[in-house]
């Protein structure tokens, strides 16, 4: 049976949200010094790249960009069997950096917990901040986002998907009802 899908954010809306988040990040961190972006694969890494180019447009500075695959750090591996392990690519030290972790949808918080564990293995950042395009609630861990594109109230049995085009550029956010 086909699931009911509703578009809750279109391409322009996504662009506006990213732009706003870029400004907020720069404002909070007082510029781009010591700022690095780490996207969580897969989804967050594409958004992080978008954020990087937006920040570059605003500040004229290319902040370091990395990506992290959190599979190795998941707390439910035993239940999930062997999930494919993606590549982690953080080719710079994180010591004393302001790390902005980027993900597409914030939900239980478990992915963020895993990602933070991974980041700790790469050094000791000054701060870790979290930027998400969608916050759909239902946290299971004491985690909150510093930058949110859109808060979307959802039911647990619903799903939120950020849809990317072939250039890995987000063009729509959908709410999927069971």
């Amino acid at each position: 049976m086909a699931k009911a899908q509703t578009a809750i954010l279109d391409k322009a809306g996504i662009k506006r949200a990213i732009t706003r988040i870029a400004h907020e990040i720069l404002e909070y961190n007082k510029g781009s010094e010591k700022l690095v972006l780490i996207g969580i694969r897969t989804g967050g890494d594409h958004l992080a790249r978008l954020l990087q180019s937006r920040i570059s447009e605003i500040e004229g500075v290319e902040v370091p960009l990395g990506s992290v695959d959190i599979t190795m750090y998941r707390d439910d591996l035993a239940a999930r069997g062997n999930l494919p392990i993606g590549k982690t690519d953080i080719p710079f030290p994180l010591d004393d950096k302001h790390v902005v972790l980027v993900d597409d949808v914030l939900y239980t918080g478990r992915t963020i917990r895993s990602a933070m564990d991974a980041l700790m293995d790469f050094g000791r950042p000054s701060t870790i901040q979290l930027a998400v395009l969608i916050d759909r609630g239902h946290r299971e861990l004491p985690i909150r986002a510093d930058y949110v594109g859109r808060n979307v109230p959802t039911a647990r049995e619903e799903d939120v998907a950020v849809v990317f085009d072939e250039k890995k550029s987000p063009f729509e956010v959908r709410l999927i009802k069971p």
Binding site: M72, Y73, D121
Partner: peptide, 12 residues
């Protein structure tokens, strides 16, 4: 990639 990190250990 893990083998080239400073902390060569993941909790998998």
């Amino acid at each position: 990639e893990i083998n080239s990190r400073d902390i060569k250990k993941v909790p998998t």
